[in-house]
């Protein structure tokens, strides 16, 4: 099958202290329409890899292409227009004074019409069951609520690819089921995603391909 590559990383090397390589000569391809799960022990480099793929961190060696473009030449905001990303800690990503504003922020500055912004914001508030929190200050919410706000804000922008770092952390079973449904729906639309997770059930339900990371490299790969 001819699969279209969304993200391609070649020979990535990254170190926080220039002594120990957290990512060690790692190469991988992530495809459109495919759900890849990245799993592995704590400290194996999963979150660091996610941030490298999005240019939040700069690799000391190696090249990354997003939709066939070298990320060196693309500003972070342009990557953000194509790829939705949720941090492991959702609080790190909240920066407005209300939940509603958080969801509509990207759309507003993209120049969408007021009606469209209202429609998308309402549908996201409904989808993630956070309508009652619309006027709340995002940083005062619980971990699970923050997680839902961040997911809603990322999906509101209709990304072409998604990278979610530990998306089930802090969510109850009911909310994980909602997330599974949302991801399934996105998969049916042909949107690819990289999920970083330890939750076995969540991995089972979503993965097309599982990458097991160890000491900064992909140690094993399983296809379903």
């Amino acid at each position: 099958m001819d699969r279209k590559i969304a993200i391609q990383a070649d020979d990535l090397v990254f170190s926080y202290d220039k002594k120990i390589n957290i990512i060690n000569k790692l190469s991988l391809s992530l495809y459109q329409g495919e759900t890849t799960v990245l799993t592995g022990a704590n400290g194996s480099g999963k979150t660091t890899l996610g941030k490298l793929l999005l240019k939040i961190f700069k690799p000391s060696m190696g090249i990354i292409h997003i939709f066939e473009k070298n990320i060196e030449s693309i500003p972070l905001s342009h990557i953000g227009q194509k790829i939705g990303y949720c941090f492991q800690n959702p609080g790190q990503q909240l920066f407005t004074s209300s939940v509603e504003e958080e969801i509509s922020f990207g759309l507003k500055y993209r120049g969408e019409s007021a009606d469209f912004i209202h429609e998308v914001t309402e549908s996201m508030l409904n989808l993630f069951e956070i309508k009652h929190l619309r006027s709340e200050f995002p940083l005062n919410l619980s971990w699970g609520e923050k997680r839902r706000v961040v997911l809603a804000a990322a999906l509101a922008l209709n990304p072409q690819y998604l990278i979610l770092d530990e998306p089930t952390m802090g969510l109850d079973d009911g909310r994980i089921n909602i997330l599974n449904r949302v991801l399934d729906n996105l998969r049916n639309k042909g949107i690819g995603m990289l999920l970083i997770s330890h939750n076995q059930q969540f991995i089972e339900e979503n993965a097309n391909r599982i990458l097991l990371m160890n000491r900064g490299n992909v140690e094993n790969e399983f296809c379903k």
């Binding site: 972070l76 905001s77 922008l157």
Partner: peptide, 28 residues
């Protein structure tokens, strides 16, 4: 970083929009 990940490039915004973003960032 979070602002840019929402697809917003401050360099590309008009001065009025830039001010609005900075003001909205200050409190949180």
């Amino acid at each position: 970083i979070a602002v840019q990940l929402r697809g917003v490039d401050l360099k590309e915004l008009k001065l009025k929009q830039k001010i609005m973003v900075y003001v909205s960032l200050l409190q949180p």
